[in-house]
Design a protein around this nucleic acid. Structure first.
Length: 472
RNA sequence: GCGCCCAUCGUCUAUCGGUUAGGACGGCACCCUUUCACGGUGCAGAGCGGGGUUCGAUUCCCCGUGGGCGUACCA
């Protein structure tokens, strides 16, 4: 019974957003570190907003990031009768009661409290009132009896001891008038029943923790260890918006980020292990501890994410990257690229070591590979065509004559021949190389142009060169 | 309004009373160089403000300021 059990409990009202992904990452890392389990519970009690598609999106997102949960995902909605059972048990124990107040009466109470400079709260009208006074035809809610005085303290691994005065908490609803549980109640019952020992969640739940402790105490249940991690903010320090990165993890995949890079980046947002920046999942598990969690909110920074992504692209094996490129081209509908990458697989694989250091995302990697399968005559972008002046084209003519006579089509041989030619004509090598690059790739940026020539081969190289010399 | 949380370079962070306040991303300069990257070297860049406590505070306490979260028959 000493096994650690954590849980990730998203509500399926949308995709797995970036903040949720990080919460899951920490819950997962802690469970793995402690040799315990991470459970997945879908908080779908809000029937209006919950969708099956969102459940799948969340599971897909977790799987893509490599955050595997133990056992089957649990539906909170499916446990409604258990929640109701506990609510009624609480009444029987004298810790809860039925309340018949109307929304209008509730509004009035809140207004009065606010006017008195107090937190807006329920005033306990039905707390000790006899049920015989109940109005006819009104379905009651069940409220828990929150302590009237004293402190409720949350012992938090991140925030420390957080004290809430009992008078600031009201008798909140645990069971709605339609018999369904509220979040505050369902969470406690589920965490208890699931044997959760450590609750790791966003600190937007910190005040909720105090309310939930009321339920734990009323039932006489042990309170799990808690760690409320700070939220992720946008670059301006305010709430994370879509423009700032509050997207589903699949959006990151579609932008060309590698799961290991996103995972690594997210881990460093609010958690640290000395000065380590780059680490594998295994290392994170080995190093992870609740003590390493930060208290302040972190801002999301796409630039740093890109940098880390670039690192993982550089380190990756070509065949792995090739697979990711194919899958991504298909996912985002880049059919021409999908076709070219598939048709010229061997060349792409051979070119990848040249491409990798130049790409920050998989999308960029695909762009960089386009010169391989581009069909003639190549589209020339504006910067490249600016390079193809009449003078440059005439130089390219000399280059072509030289290359036609070249027997050894290797980087070394081409390099030597080109340098000799440049010297003979009194030109810097760049004067030959840049127009050549424009002609062979249609761009001003590419891997080493001699490498490009070897990659696409002699015939294709000469043909592309010819396209630029002979037209005009 | 009320309650709670937070605060080190632009950003992510190290520091757990004594440091020239360290690293990473980004920026700038230089090197490498056929372009762009990669790589290498160097530079600039921070303890929110005010009070305490202490021989000594970035670090502990209080106030202020700024930001965040919560305040639902949402989760």
């Amino acid at each position: 019974m000493s096994q650690v059990v954590t849980r990730f409990a998203p509500s399926p009202t949308g995709y797995l957003h970036i903040g949720g992904a990080r919460t899951a990452l920490f819950s997962w890392a802690y469970a793995r570190k402690m040799g315990g389990k991470m459970l997945l519970r879908i908080e779908d009690t809000d029937r209006e907003r919950s969708t099956e598609a969102a459940v799948e999106a969340i599971k897909d997102g977790l799987s893509w990031l490599g955050l595997h949960w133990d056992g089957d995902a649990i539906s909170q909605f499916g446990r409604a009768s258990r929640h109701a059972e506990i609510a009624h048990e609480l009444i029987a124990r004298g810790h809860a009661y039925k309340c018949y107040c109307s929304p209008a009466e509730l509004d009035q109470m809140r207004e009065e409290a606010r006017a008195a400079g107090k937190p807006p709260r329920y005033n306990g009208y039905w707390r000790d009132r006899d049920q015989s006074e109940a109005p006819a035809g009104v379905a009651p809610v069940i409220r828990i009896k929150s302590p009237l005085s004293g402190d409720i303290v949350v012992h938090d691994h991140v925030q420390g001891e957080v004290v809430f005065k009992a008078e600031n908490l009201d008798d909140f609803i645990i069971l709605r008038s339609d018999g369904t549980p509220t979040y505050m109640h369902a969470v406690v019952v589920d965490d208890h029943d699931m044997g959760v020992t450590h609750i790791i969640r966003g600190d937007d739940h910190l005040t909720n923790a105090a309310r939930q402790i009321v339920v734990y105490n009323a039932m006489g249940w042990d309170i799990p260890e808690m760690a409320h991690i700070p939220l992720i903010h946008g670059p301006d320090g305010a709430k994370l918006s879509k423009r700032h990165g509050a997207l589903g993890v699949e959006a990151y995949r579609q932008m060309g980020y590698l799961p290991e890079a996103l995972r690594n980046y997210l881990a460093r947002l609010g958690w640290s292990h000395d000065d380590d920046e780059i680490f594998s999942s295994e290392q994170m598990i080995e190093w992870f501890s609740l003590d390493g969690l930060n208290k302040g909110a972190a801002r999301f920074d796409f630039v740093k994410l890109e940098s880390i992504n670039g690192h993982y692209i550089r380190e990756a094996k070509p065949d792995y990257l090739y697979g990711v490129m194919i899958a991504l081209a298909e996912e985002v509908g880049r059919l021409a690229d999908l076709e070219g990458l598939t048709a010229d697989k061997a060349t792409v694989l051979a070119a990848l070591p040249e491409l990798q250091p130049r790409a920050k995302t998989i999308l960029e990697l695909i762009d960089l590979a386009q010169f391989i399968y581009a069909s003639r005559p190549l589209p020339i972008d504006s910067a490249a065509s600016a390079l193809l002046t009449p003078d440059a084209r005439s130089v390219l003519g000399d280059v072509r004559d030289l290359l036609i006579g070249l027997n050894d089509w290797s980087v070394e041989a081409i390099d030597a021949a080109m340098r000799t030619l440049a010297e003979a004509k009194g030109l810097k090598l760049g004067k030959l190389a840049q127009p050549l690059r424009a002609a062979l790739t249609g761009r001003t940026v590419s891997p080493g142009i001699f490498e490009v020539m070897v990659l696409i081969g002699r015939d294709e190289s000469l043909a592309r060169l010819g396209d630029q010399i002979d037209t005009k």
